[in-house]
Design a protein around this nucleic acid. Structure first.
Length: 163
DNA sequence: GCGACAG
DNA sequence: ATCTTGTCGC
């Protein structure tokens, strides 16, 4: 857990659980949320916002992991995925004046740092895409991924290598 | 039928 | 996600 806007790390908990559900595109929540709930329950205080490693609204059923976790906890969440699951971007036609007019906006493709591969931001629970974008960018300092996600990933990696 | 497919 | 050699840039 980090404080905002300082992004100073205040708490960190780590849980290790066996998986009980396989990885199936579109059903990531069923694999990840159980462990996430356990970890969040061990924090000394409930966070005001959660940046999720996965999509929120940008999901085939418009209900990705960020939405699922956020609704369960009734806590604001943002989906910040490293790759696309559904939807498309770019490619307006070659002709002058051509532009894309999506029937539905799923999220945004955000380049958090110069020349780095962009991340896919979408609204999770109780937040607008606009605010989700602003907060994600505000949490991305020196790396591609926002600090909360990057530090959590680092913690899990360190845990594994130490065995 | 074929391609796509968060982590 | 994980595996895995070499490579690029600060």
């Amino acid at each position: 857990m980090l404080e905002y806007p300082g992004l100073v790390l205040t708490d960190q908990v780590l849980v290790e659980r066996p998986t009980t559900f396989p990885y199936v595109p579109g059903l990531l929540s069923f694999r990840e949320v159980p462990a996430l709930l356990e970890a969040l329950g061990q924090l000394p205080a409930a966070p005001d916002l959660i940046l999720c490693d996965g999509h929120g609204y940008a999901h085939p059923r418009r209900f990705g992991l960020a939405c699922h976790l956020g609704l369960w906890l009734d806590t604001p969440t943002i989906g910040v995925a490293k790759s696309r699951l559904t939807g498309s971007h770019d490619e307006p036609g070659p002709g002058e004046g051509r532009c894309r007019r999506p029937r539905e906006r799923l999220g945004a493709v955000l380049r958090t740092r110069e020349r780095v591969k962009p991340v896919f931001v979408s609204a999770g629970h109780r937040i607008s895409l606009r605010t989700a974008l602003a907060l994600t960018l505000a949490c991305a300092t020196r790396y591609r991924l926002p600090e909360p996600t990057r530090l959590a990933d680092k913690l899990s990696k360190a845990h594994r290598s130490g065995r």
